[in-house]
Design a protein around this nucleic acid. Structure first.
Lengths: 345, 345
DNA sequence: TTTACTGTTGCAATCGATTGCAATCGGACT
DNA sequence: AGTCCGATTGCAATCGATTGCAACAGTAAA
């Protein structure tokens, strides 16, 4: 590889770091180099080729920071994950992480980079303003409203390019993409009741508004159909969930015959606890989850659950954000959840 | 809230966007404002307070891009996830996503931001150089070597601040943090054999070097103990894994009595397929996984597996990277995996 | 030969914060 | 009163790419 060696030598000999360096070698002005590399301007084809060749040879890449400063845009979208209720929640929450993966795909495809920031609002009042005002991002996607609904709503008034994954409330001011949690809750309760359950329980934290909406939907159906329902507070921190569920089950065993879990993660843990207690599913107790994670089809027995379309959600978030970056004031997007019937209810 | 209103009015009336704007209001020079806000310089206490007050009142934040340009550092660490073998692999790979979560925590704690980029090397030869040369990041963490070992190794020669999650090879040039996959493979095989298995199979793709090392470790033990072992190629794409495993099982049912799955994700799917075929675990067939994901303790039966310490891995990655940012040429870090005995072997 | 025009290129200002160096001021000391 | 010192502050260059405008060359038309 003599050619390659020579090239490497040349590369290290004359270090080309700036447009100006390259311009000197090419015998043109920095401006011309800039235009040539940008490709879109009116540069002579031959000049452009020559400049491109030199750039390639020296492995030159224009400094992004200078470029971004000058052009007043970063090409970066900030993705914030506020950890409000359970600090350790989302670390292992497959749902959020999968959403993040899809977001990364969508943004990459549209030519944006993704800056990830996990924030703990309790320790940092100012997280959203800081993120937005940092000048590092052109727009922001917030994954999960957590307990920050008010703050997000306030910021939304003065900052257009922000889209939030979460629940849609009547009269809210920020643009949100998310499933119809209330409807999902209804679907779950309907299924449980249709399977014969008469004393329901909701397993999960009812503080976050997404979960509150799921519970509310289930309650509405239960009420209409004359069935009881109660909430059993359960956290999402992976090391606590198991014990909490066990405690609940110990206390109320026999008092309920249908469980609506706030997420599949909780449902899966619940299934295991029930298995350990040799409670037959679904004959003795019915279970419905929420999310339809990949694991959910592989539990024993396979989990009946309410599916959220994560890919569509990510696409929606990015799509709306890009439109907002163009100045459009978009409406929220509410996605319909779907009941996936398997064997637990 | 009249005070607040007045403040808002003032805020919108005189828009303070730059140091210079603020300097004019404060009646000092931009340089002084810069120093005052940076906090670390020799600015008169009273001046500083006044400047800080004005900044707070107007919600002023210095432009990061300008700052980064001038200081020649970004405070951003790039995290790249190359998708080499299965493009859709990591989207749902809990392990990588959890690692990412921990990385975000660690980096945040150290005052760095995290820029996430998912790359498909097959479509983008130049991904690593582009990321590094973009001028957007001070350093890079690569999650998974995928099939990019050579490329990463090449880049490592000329670029210090890079750390990679993956497998450590004899004589490699890039700094890596990862589990001792070979040892993990040994532990798994030993356990299977100790449980009575005599005809082993490795379930997974043997191309990625992490998996190859796991398989190699298992093979070594099998050979030493006079036990057979074969590889059953299985992809990680969630929608294909199931079928592939089913096909394998259909073909070789009865010919094997011990399965070492390359990851817990595969093991969980495998468990389900075995359940569907009413194969008794562990009496008829023993299974050992790799990773010890949260789900793994909740399968039926609970999965015996080899644990990787994700949190320690993330800490190691960040720690080594920061030292490299200080110019130190660090050694690789190999973490010992641990066998977690549950009920599948 | 002059005028007009088109296609390229160079010049220089600009984005906004940082920082080395020089200037200034008040006070202390001789 | 004159000199010196330390604490602050201002000045101006700098980071590197972008871009409006002017300048230029070359060609075609008059």
């Amino acid at each position: 590889m003599t050619g390659s060696d020579a090239q490497n030598l040349a590369r290290s000999a004359t270090k080309v770091r700036t447009l100006a360096d390259l311009a000197k070698i090419a015998g043109v002005s920095p401006g011309t180099v800039s235009r040539a590399l940008a490709g879109n301007s009116l540069v002579n084809a031959k000049t452009r080729e020559k400049i491109e060749a030199i750039a390639r040879e020296h492995g030159f890449r224009p400094n992004q920071m200078a470029s971004k400063l000058r052009r007043q845009k970063t090409g970066v979208i900030g993705v914030a994950i506020p950890l409000g209720h359970d600090v350790r929640q989302q670390i292992s929450d497959t749902f959020f992480m999968t959403l993040l993966g899809h977001l990364a795909d969508e943004l990459t495809e549209k030519g944006y980079d993704l800056m990830l920031r996990r924030v703990i609002p309790a320790q940092d009042e100012d997280w959203l303003d800081r993120f937005i005002g940092s000048g590092m991002v052109d727009g922001v996607i917030v994954i999960g409203q957590s307990d920050q609904f008010e703050r997000i709503d306030d910021v939304a008034d003065g900052y257009l390019p922000m889209v939030v994954w979460g629940n849609h409330q009547e009269g809210q001011r920020h643009c949100v993409v998310g499933s119809d949690n209330r409807l999902g809750g209804k679907l779950a309760a309907e299924r449980l009741i249709a399977s014969g359950a008469k004393r329901l329980a909701f397993l999960g934290d009812t503080q976050p508004i997404e979960f509150a909406a799921r519970y509310a939907g289930a309650k509405e159906v239960a009420k209409k159909l004359g069935v009881s329902i109660r909430a059993l507070p359960t956290h999402l921190a992976p090391d606590r969930t198991g014990e909490e569920i066990a405690a609940h089950l110990g206390k109320i065993e026999g008092e309920i015959d249908g469980i609506f879990a706030a997420t599949d993660t909780i449902a899966v843990t619940c299934l295991k606890e029930l298995r350990d207690r040799s409670i037959a599913i679904p004959s003795q107790l019915k279970v419905v989850g929420f999310d339809d994670l990949p694991i959910s089809s592989q539990t024993a027995p396979p989990l009946t659950t309410v599916r959220q379309d994560i890919a569509a959600g990510a696409k929606g978030l990015v799509d709306l954000l890009l439109r907002r970056l163009n100045g459009e004031d978009t409406e929220s997007l509410v996605l319909p959840p779907h009941l996936i019937v398997r064997e637990t209810a």
